[in-house]
């Protein structure tokens, strides 16, 4: 079988970096996903799509702006627009299952598994670091666990889901992943960061 290569290259070295004399404030890693999928409902089909996605992924999804969910198997999803969801999971078959299960009269399902890279960033200083890059409120009350935001860092679109009190996952175009990793590392330098 062909080895899966990371787009992050040799710059993204495991270890401690930046100002880590007092320990590191965040840990950054590439979150490896088996499937990454975007699903879009046709107008009026939002409820049907949400119910179908919930059933296939075993998640409790809602069409509310920014809402999201995750389950124990690591499947997670969040709303990124009107009738639009970004879903991912460890299971490589998930993308195919969703494409097969969502009727073409309900909406469209696009397999992005090879088109996105997901960064996980976690640690005590995670909100401080992300607030440097995005004009969003990262406090837990404004951005609760499992909810998500579709946003941008300059020209790079980024979809963000909060996966824990101090953990976020950031979805970026795979072709921009190496450049974005550099940005993320630069923003983490003052708090010190671990790459895992």
């Amino acid at each position: 079988m062909v080895e899966r290569a990371s787009p992050l290259g040799s710059d993204f070295r495991p270890g401690f970096h930046g100002d880590f004399a007092e320990g590191t404030g965040v840990t950054i890693l590439e979150a490896i996903k088996g499937s990454i999928v975007e699903a879009n409902a046709w107008p009026g089909e939002e409820k049907t799509l949400t119910e179908n996605l919930s059933a296939i992924c075993r998640l409790k999804l809602s069409a509310a702006p920014g809402s999201g969910a995750a389950n124990r198997e690591g499947t997670c999803a969040f709303n990124i627009g009107p009738g639009r969801f970004l879903l991912s999971g460890q299971d490589e078959a998930l993308a195919g299952d969703l494409i097969a299960a969502i009727d073409e009269t309900t909406g469209t399902v696009t397999d992005l598994s090879h088109g996105r890279t997901v960064f996980a960033i976690e640690g005590s200083q995670v909100e401080w670091v992300l607030a440097k890059l995005f004009a969003l409120d990262f406090s837990l009350s404004a951005f609760p666990v499992h909810t998500g935001r579709a946003t941008a860092h300059h020209d790079l679109f980024v979809q963000i889901q909060r996966r824990g009190e101090k953990r976020f996952e950031l979805y970026v175009f795979r072709s921009f992943a190496r450049a974005f990793a550099k940005t993320l590392r630069r923003a983490s330098e003052d708090v010190g960061y671990t790459i895992r």
Partner: peptide, 16 residues
């Protein structure tokens, strides 16, 4: 110079 109706896209967001 004043009120104007414009199309915008939330391109770096929900894309609406």
């Amino acid at each position: 110079a004043g009120r104007h109706r414009e199309f915008w896209q939330h391109a770096g967001g929900c894309r609406a």
